[in-house]
Structures are given as structure tokens and as C-alpha cells.
């Protein structure tokens, strides 16, 4: 049976997952969406995996949960960064309420001219 500490960790993780997905629906452009969703869902899923690890302790299952957690922690920001860069280079406009865009000059020049 699941004990108290894993239950608390998993509940908090589930809440963050849900909040991240609400952000994915509510926020105005792809950059803000990627931002909110990546942060919240990464931490949420890591907390769920950590809850599983505390439930099973030092065993094959717990070890796999910890490895999976580290793996998500390293890869999720890289994936978000790659998608956002691709979005910018494919010409997705920023939300009209955006205040500054320092990236425009660099992104529009060809890579070999840098």
C-alpha cells in the first residue's frame, strides 16, 4: 500500500502537471506556452517519479525511477529550446503584447554570415 510521503509528492506533482497543461491552453503565443508547460510538467513528472522512488526505496524499481527522473530533467529543457528555436526560425510571430525582441537581427541573417 502507498504510504504518506509518496502520496504527498505524487499529489503535488499531479497538480503541477495540471497547471502546466492549463498554461498550455491559456497563454497567448507558442513561446509563453512552451515556457509554462515545460517548467511545470518537468517538475511535476519528476515529483511523480521521485514519489515512486521513495515508495520502492533502494531497489530495481526505485533506481529506474531515479534514472528516469534525471533523464527527463536533462532532456526536457533541450527539447523545449529546440522547438522554440525552430518556431522562431520558421517565422512564428510573437504575441502583440511582447515588449522587446533582441533576437530578430540574428535569426534573419544566414548562418554563414555570422
Amino acid at each position: 500500500m502507498t504510504s504518506l510521503l509518496p502520496k504527498v509528492l505524487i499529489t503535488v506533482g499531479l497538480l503541477f502537471d495540471l497547471l502546466g497543461c492549463i498554461g498550455l491552453v491559456r497563454l497567448p503565443d507558442v513561446y509563453n506556452r512552451a515556457q509554462a508547460a515545460t517548467k511545470c510538467v518537468t517538475l511535476g513528472t519528476c515529483l511523480i517519479l521521485f514519489g515512486v522512488a521513495t515508495q520502492f526505496g533502494v531497489s530495481a524499481l526505485g533506481m529506474k525511477a531515479v534514472l528516469c527522473m534525471l533523464f527527463i530533467l536533462f532532456t526536457s529543457p533541450v527539447g523545449a529550446h529546440a522547438i522554440v528555436r525552430g518556431a522562431y526560425k520558421s517565422g512564428v510571430k510573437m504575441w502583440e503584447g511582447s515588449v522587446v525582441d533582441a533576437y530578430r537581427d540574428v535569426a534573419t541573417t544566414k548562418p554563414e554570415e555570422r
Binding site: 506556452r33 512552451a34 515545460t38 510538467v41 527539447g79 518556431a87
Partner: peptide
């Protein structure tokens, strides 16, 4: 693409 990425992370959950 962002939503698909997030959905992939949710499957781990």
C-alpha cells in the same frame, strides 16, 4: 509540437 512534447512527458506519469 510543444503539446506533443508535453504529452510524451505525461505518458511517463
Amino acid at each position: 509540437a510543444v503539446a506533443i512534447d508535453i504529452l510524451g512527458t505525461l505518458v511517463v506519469g
